[in-house]
Each structure stands twice: as C-alpha cells, then as structure tokens.
Design a protein around this nucleic acid. Structure first.
Lengths: 261, 261
DNA sequence: AAGTGGTCTAGACCACGGC
DNA sequence: CCGTGGTCTAGACCACTTC
C-alpha cells in the first residue's frame, strides 16, 4: 500500500497530470481524510497511542499520506469534534483522555459490562398482547396492534435491581423467541437479527411507590419509593421501535445525567 | 460595506498582490467564515429566512462575500454541525426546522417562561453555613468553607412544585443578598453580576419519600414519592460553582431526557 | 527560530438532484 | 442539462507555543 496510490472517488492529482479524471475509479474506496482518521483511530484503539500523547501533525500526516495540508487538517478537525483528540495551536494534536460517556443510550448488558458488575436478567413474562392502545400509540401503531410484551427482572451482583417491561410490534419483529432474550440484550438482537439500528430514546422519569406485586418482585417494602422510567426508543430511521416501562430500586440505582447550557 | 473590503486577520489576497502581509491589521475583526455565519444567523433570527427555506449556496456566498469556495463552505459546514441548517448534495442548503432543545441546562425561570406558565419562587431560607464538608467537597472547597445556603420553594400555577436548596461559596459570591433572589434567577445573577457563565451540570436522580417537613412544605402526604435531584453546576472554566438539592412532587413534575446511542 | 494549528486562495473533479 | 454539495490541491500568511 503505497501512500500515493489507491485514490478513490477523489478527483485529486488531476491538476498535475491535467485530467486523469475517471482513472482510479475503484468505486467504493473511502475519501482520503477518512482513511487518515481510520489509521489514527486504530492506533488509539490498539494502544499504540495513549491519552495525552502527541498525534502526527497536519504537515506530517499530509506528507505521510501524500495529501494536501487541507485534507490532513480536515481529518484532524473532525476527530477533534468527535472528542477523540484535542488540538492546541502552537503545540500540537493530542489524544484526548477517555471520556465518560454521558447521556448515552446503552443496554443493561452494556451498562453492567462497562462497570465490570456481573449482571443478569431473567425473562419472567413473554407473550403477545393486543388492546393496549396507549402503548401502541407510543410506537406509532394502530390501536389494536399485536404487541410483543416482555417482562424482565434485572439483577446485579445477585440482587434484584429493576423490573422492565418492554413492548414492540409483534408483526415487525415476528419470530422473536423467549430463548433469544435469555442470553443477550434486545439491543443486540434488534441490531443483529432485525437490522434495526437504535438511535435515541426519549425518557420520562418520575418517582412512584412500589405496589404489592412489584414490591415483592424487587424485594422492597410495599410503598417503597421507586424510580419509574418510561422510554420510547427510536431507530436511526426515526421509527419508534421499543417502549420500555421500568421500575428501579432507588436504593440500588441512581440516574446520572449531564446537561449542557 | 463592500464585500471585498475589510478583511481582518486573514492572510488572504497576498498571493495575487504578492504579499501585502500586515496591511489590513484591524486587529480584532472576525474570520471571514464567522462573518458569513453571522449574516445567515441574523437572517434566520430576524425571520428573513424561515425553516425549510433555501440558504445561499456555497458559490453564491463565496461571490457575495468575496471569499473562496472553501471559506464559504467552511461557514456552511459549521452551521450544519450546529444543527442550524441542513445540506443536501445536489439540492442545496436549507434552514433546519427549529429544534426542541433536549437535556439543556436551564433555570426554573427560563423553564417556566418557555412553557408560558406563571412561575414563582419564594426564598424561605437564606444564610451562611459552615461545617458541611460533603457539600463543600462537591464544590471542590476546603471542608470548613463558608457556604451560602438558599432554600427556595418553587410554585407553578399557584401550586407548590419543588423545594430546592442551593449552596455556593460564600467567599466567591460575597455580597449576594436575599433580595437579589426574590426576583430573578440565580443563573442570571451569576452571569450578570458575578461574570460567571454556567456551562454544564451533573445530575443524580433518584426516588425518595417525603419526610414530614418536606411533605408539609410541598403539600403532599408524608411518605409520598418524590423525585430527588442533586445537581452540581459547573462554570465555563470548569469550576463547580453551585450545588443544588431538589425535591420534586412526582405528581407535578416529570423529568424528560433524550439519550443518544 | 522552528513547529503547530487556524484561516484562506483559486482553482479542480466528482456524485448527486431536479428539471 | 446545470447547479448543488463533497472532496481535494499546493501553496500562502498568521498567531501561537515551545526542547
């Protein structure tokens, strides 16, 4: 892989050679600035570049990748906006310290893994329901739609932690089996098996008291305060795909949010 | 204002004239791409450009502002990242629909104003305290620091709504009077009188039960579920300036969050 | 003084959208 | 077809930090 070869859909190097135009039409290769970003991202992921260390300068990247300064600059500027690097005029470009991800939509499984806590979830109910017009409405479905209803008890470190009931269109996600959920997250299932990428969630949070049934399941006294979170999760195409009603033991769960001005 | 005059600290037009270098050293004028952004922003704010309408193209802006394509492009690309415009290849640049601001750090006053609800807050306690090492620690102050403690009851539409106690360094914000707070928000006070711009807040949210005193103040039964929010608010310089402990009636308040994947 | 990022030029070709 | 945004060049000067 020589740095000056394999240009993709770019129209570069045609000034010098006065139009080679459609030569190099590999069709699907990445823009140069993306390739530069990828080499830097890989170095960071592989640990070859650690937080605080100096990244190649614009001029260095331009030379090593055989591109112009503006192109190298574009690559670095975008990485900066992503928060992967910090740039200081007169000084250089540095790998940014690993960021705590605030307000990220992550699954229970991912959450537990990121904290190295042994997490587990048990499916305690799995069925198809209909006649839930309010929930159907939240998923932008007709009132009588058939809905998959999945109730799961989350446990962390062996203790009951939360009770989550989620609803999704039974027609859109036909073939989903209880066994699929026993191991692995719904997030993974949707993304891998149903090609549905999740994008964002709107959450309504309030406080409530544990009713007898919920209290028993979560092993708290009746009337104990619980955090209630109602989540509507949207796919990258903007469709509401999942509605989740969750109750969280307030002695085991704190919701952390970062807000910006 | 001719479009080709008044260039600031840019080093442009020196190729053509072979170095006029430090001419045009007005010293403090904005970069060209910022000026272009400002003209567009103003048009949108003034209603001359409405959501969905076509913004001048890169080429048009380059001509009218007497800059190169790359510069005009830079201006538009940044406005796109800010979410102010949408760009569609082959079609053009359009004013983006007004966005709902999610997860924004806003004051009670701003919140109520944005919903056109008559809001009111009453200061029910105002004093200087010390010997609150935990709170001092959250503000990154020494354990024995003197702290301003302000307790306020928020009312909306005539009903008790929330009880907020906030703490800030008594030394850094000397001279703050109870009367300053009776009308207007702490946010405004800090930004206008103390030149402290707020930037972000970390919040911890959980559920709790109303203790007798709080229950009475908020006019709810003892033991009623309340949303408890502990907020540490940071200035643009990264300093923790405000710690707020709030209790919210769960029948009058829902916390809305949008999380992204 | 040397090196870095920030701004800018005056062009170019490409892929795409709409008529 | 023509106009749009997306990518890119091969330089330039500036302001800034620093072994």
């Amino acid at each position: 892989m020589s740095p000056t070869s394999s240009n993709g859909k770019n129209g570069n190097r045609r000034v010098a050679a006065l139009d080679r135009s459609k030569a190099n039409s590999n069709g699907n290769s990445l823009p140069a600035y993306r390739r530069i970003q990828n080499t830097i991202r890989e170095k960071i992921e592989d640990g070859k570049l650690r937080a605080g260390e100096l990244v190649d300068s614009e001029r260095e990247l331009a030379r090593s990748h055989g591109v112009s300064l503006m192109t190298a600059r574009h690559a670095l500027a975008e990485l900066q906006r992503e928060g992967l690097v910090e740039r200081h005029r007169g000084s250089g470009t540095y790998v940014a310290p690993p960021k705590i991800q605030f307000n990220k939509l992550i699954s229970f499984t991912e959450q537990m893994a990121s904290r190295s806590i042994p997490g587990h979830s048990r499916v305690i109910h799995f069925s198809v329901v209909h006649g839930e017009p309010e929930i159907a409405a939240r998923l932008a479905l007709p009132p009588g739609s058939r809905l998959l209803m999945i109730e799961r008890l989350r446990e962390a470190a062996g203790e009951p932690f939360s009770l989550e009931t989620c609803f999704l269109s039974a027609d859109s996600f036909a073939g989903m089996q209880r066994s699929h959920l026993e191991r692995g997250s719904i997030f993974g299932l949707l993304e891998q098996e149903y090609d549905t990428k999740l994008s964002y969630a709107d959450e309504d949070v309030d406080a409530t008291s544990a009713d007898p049934k919920t209290a028993e399941i979560l092993a708290v006294p009746r009337g104990a305060p619980l955090l209630r979170i109602r989540q509507t999760i949207f796919s990258t195409t903007g469709k509401a795909v999942l509605y989740v009603l969750g109750f969280y033991r307030s002695d085991r769960h704190i919701l952390h949010i970062r807000r910006f001005r």
